[in-house]
Design a protein around this nucleic acid. Sequence first.
DNA 1: GACTCGTGTAACGTGACGCTTGACGCGTAA
DNA 2: TTACGCGTCAAGCGTCACGTTACACGAGTC
Lengths: 105, 105
Amino acid sequence: MSAERELPRFRPPHPGEYIRDDILPSLEMTITDLAEHLGVSRASLSELVNGNRSLSIEMAQRLGQAFGNGTRFWVQLQMQRDIWDAEKNSGIKIKLLRQRSGKAA
Amino acid sequence: MSAERELPRFRPPHPGEYIRDDILPSLEMTITDLAEHLGVSRASLSELVNGNRSLSIEMAQRLGQAFGNGTRFWVQLQMQRDIWDAEKNSGIKIKLLRQRSGKAA
DNA sequence: GACTCGTGTAACGTGACGCTTGACGCGTAA
DNA sequence: TTACGCGTCAAGCGTCACGTTACACGAGTC
């Protein structure tokens, strides 16, 4: 009874929202600018920023280097959203397997 | 100077190793047994256990439900390894973008 | 009006990868 | 030898991030 963290009440924000709302304004950059700086296509970054695509590990690396907050930050952002979606939308129901820790009823 | 966590010195273990070394023995189950319980094919679980495949979100859900430690645990296991690999093997070098926080040299 | 930017998005091809199915090799018991 | 359980491999499929190219729209500017 420990590893089960509660699901957030609301769907975690897409990494792209963060880029759009916080990063780009504070850097005074356009999507086109940032895409060029990151070495990705404009279309690719645009779709990411608009939430139409999820973050790859490689994209997370680029963002982490560009903004100085590391790969992990971005991957976790995406991960939280992925987990939320998975828990919400799936009908997977697997029965709990009891580890044999001595006391077997 | 905060979000940059250090990379582990050694490659984080593959989730499959954990299943093979700890879970399966303590449950006294075979790969075939567990695959059936999880509702996936033998081959799929076999490749996972042997480190030839990484964990999908859906597989993480199944494992999390079966072992009672939640989806997040398994996804994080995989994430740590993915990040480690990405940092080690990639030649990506993006210049840091300075946020304009008042003091501009 | 025409021109330039910045943007969103669709179509196409590509490569990566998780998954299933079917077949194979190996060990063990009848 | 035959039969069975187990693990693994190979082929095929679907999904998806990505680049490229192209088009359409709005806001400025001339």
